[in-house]
Design a protein around this nucleic acid. Structure first.
Lengths: 168, 168
DNA sequence: TTAAACTTTCAGTAATTTTTGAACTTTTGA
DNA sequence: TCAAAAGTTCAAAAATTACTGAAAGTTTAA
């Protein structure tokens, strides 16, 4: 396979993966393009490569910056903004985990704690099933939460090393 | 909070969470409803509780069965089909992990292996960055893969026990 | 202070995804 | 064998989400 074909496939696959995980396709594609670009790119570069509009490019770049996956760069003597993606996969994974934890896991844990307080009749089967499901999900969510917190602080090699030491 | 309010909030939250993770809202809501229902429900029950159409209910139930999260039950002497959700959270997590691994991780690993074979000029910076990104993502994907495989085989208490033994 | 170079915003449009509902199929019991 | 009761399908409609392009905003340098 040629590099140019490989690059296209990579961008396409990253976009598809993103959309399967609730991340907009274009945002994932811009990220993919930056991941395989040695140099920072301008808005124009991205628009051309992906044939998308200026507005779309701009908004998705802001989002990527909001996710902590892309940063703005300025070249001295130039007015234009350049965009660069961190290439360290472990940082990317951590950053995504961090943001999704904040946006989704934390609120769900908060709700589950509230739902644990729901009062009812212990003889009511609906109530018993509700309580039991909420309790179990709560436990799982808290375990995931603890594991993510460890991961957020950890070095990649230590993290996987620890995992595999046990799992063999 | 009252049980009825809690049930509504739970269904709503589960639906939202699903949609944030690329799972259709209604499918997640049906799953939520079944999770907090002690008895198996009929299509009619679900249609009424969630005020959705028969077609929609039917299709999403098929999908849930396809994900291995819901099973059909038959009551003797009755024509109607009843639907029941496994309430074991660990089984649910494993089932979701298993399906998503099969549908998404496995294909991505296959592609990454192909992309590892892309030929090019070692002096080309584009080529070098491409190779390096592909290699790193490949490594991460394989680590995730191994961890998932362990998880799929494991008992819940053993799994979290092992994780926390290391992470403290 | 002006104008060129660039960035941001957002109303309108387009694309995609989800839902409906009615026609169609299957199963069952009389 | 038939009709009632249930289950399934899918074209069309609705809802949601993403994209465009042009106007408005900002920054810079002369």
């Amino acid at each position: 396979m040629e590099l140019s074909e490989g690059r296209l496939k990579f961008i396409e696959a990253w976009g598809k993966l993103g959309s399967e995980w609730g991340i907009n396709r274009t945002m994932a594609q811009i990220h993919a393009l930056l991941l395989i670009s040695p140099e920072a790119l301008t808005t124009e570069d991205i628009m051309e490569e992906l044939t998308i509009s200026r507005g779309n490019t701009n908004m998705n770049l802001r989002d990527l910056i909001g996710w902590g996956l892309v940063e703005k760069q300025h070249k001295s003597g130039e007015r234009k903004e350049y965009f660069y993606a961190d290439k360290d996969t472990w940082n990317i994974a951590r950053q995504v985990a961090k943001e999704r934890k904040k946006r989704e896991l934390d609120p769900i844990i908060k709700l589950l704690n509230e739902l644990s307080e729901v009062k009812g009749d212990d003889k009511d089967r609906n109530y018993k099933t509700f309580r039991s499901s909420v309790k179990d999900i709560n436990k799982l969510a808290k375990n995931v939460n603890k594991t993510l917190e460890t991961m957020l602080k950890a070095e990649e090699s230590w993290f996987w090393g620890s995992i595999f030491k046990i799992f063999k």
